[in-house]
Write a protein that binds this DNA or RNA. Structure first.
Lengths: 185, 185
DNA sequence: GTCTATATCAAGATAGAC
DNA sequence: GTCTATCTTGATATAGAC
């Protein structure tokens, strides 16, 4: 293995991809270390445990969303429709990235019930997302309707990610994208 | 399906619940054996491996759906709306059962990408479901629309299962149920 | 058909040299 | 900060007695 100088941020970015593609339980510390170009022993210099590693990954996803994505909903310099499009595209970039589906949905479904550790972060991710969507919809719909549309968008999006993955076909996701955008003038 | 359950089938039923609640990778053969009231060693009398165990579980879900649930779409003795309601309720019973979300979605998201073993069965489950929904919708909508409505229903349903799980609140699922039924006169 | 015992391996994690 | 070596545990799976 070549000697690679790395840092905590780079490790988190790499780990995000490994976790998203392999899942939490099916990813070993060896897998993570190897993906980072480190020996397993070296890896513990950065993170005490696999659990803390994943927590750091999800925390970074949430803070990135909070800093860069959810505020799009408040950007009144662009049209409602453009805000919605920009938000959806940005969500896709951060949560889907390359392959493996959505890190938040994957982790939710995999750890729900038994592990309560990631729950708050995952809830904050989905609540923030839904909230941002609702803000955008509320510019053209009454409160009850925009809340429902926001919920529907999140649910359809995650369902579409699953079906796209399963069938190796992006069409489901693209369709949801188009349908969602069509809800705004 | 036979009227009298074999021992193997009881194991499959128990394993389904354990897998759905703990996930595939986070369930050990010990967990399964214990849930069945067997020693780990005894468990291998019935199934050669964990993988074959899960395959049997998913196969049984699919065959139950094929035998008892999807045909509801063809039952012209009840109204369109009642068929839709009966189908959705039956899907819920088989895939959700108690707690832990949807076995098909959980397994899809957890094993997608790395494991190709369960893929065909999972695809058949979702395709059969979508197909049954489309049949029902097609009695009141044109082909393109009913296909889209069927896709949307599956996606929203799975998204709702996730959010309901995450927030320990059935409301998301109930809302989808009501919204879906409202699509039929 | 169920048990106990065990083989084998990989996982998470730590210690200490450099 | 990275390495090698190691500890401990728990996982899958098998063997063979009853």
């Amino acid at each position: 293995m070549p000697l690679i100088k790395t840092n905590k941020e780079e490790i988190i970015d790499t780990a995000l991809n490994v976790f998203r593609e392999n899942g939490y339980y099916n990813t070993s510390m060896s897998d993570l270390a190897k993906a980072c170009g480190l020996q397993k022993g070296s890896f513990y210099h950065y993170f005490d445990s696999k659990e803390k590693m994943m927590s750091a990954v999800l925390d970074k996803v949430l803070s990135t969303l909070n800093a860069e994505v959810f505020p799009i909903a408040d950007d009144m310099s662009i049209s409602d429709r453009d805000r919605l499009q920009k938000l959806m595209l940005s969500i896709g970039e951060i949560m889907l990235q390359k392959s493996g589906g959505c890190i938040a949905a994957n982790t939710s479904l995999e750890t729900n019930g038994q592990s309560v550790i990631f729950r708050d972060t995952l809830k904050a991710i989905f609540d923030g997302w839904q909230n941002a969507l609702q803000k955008i919809f509320s510019s053209q719909y009454p409160e009850g309707t925009s809340k429902r549309l926001a919920e529907q968008t999140v649910m359809e999006f995650e369902g579409a990610v699953m079906l796209s993955q399963l069938h190796s076909n992006d069409q489901y996701l693209k369709d949801v994208f188009v349908r969602t955008l069509a809800k705004m003038k």
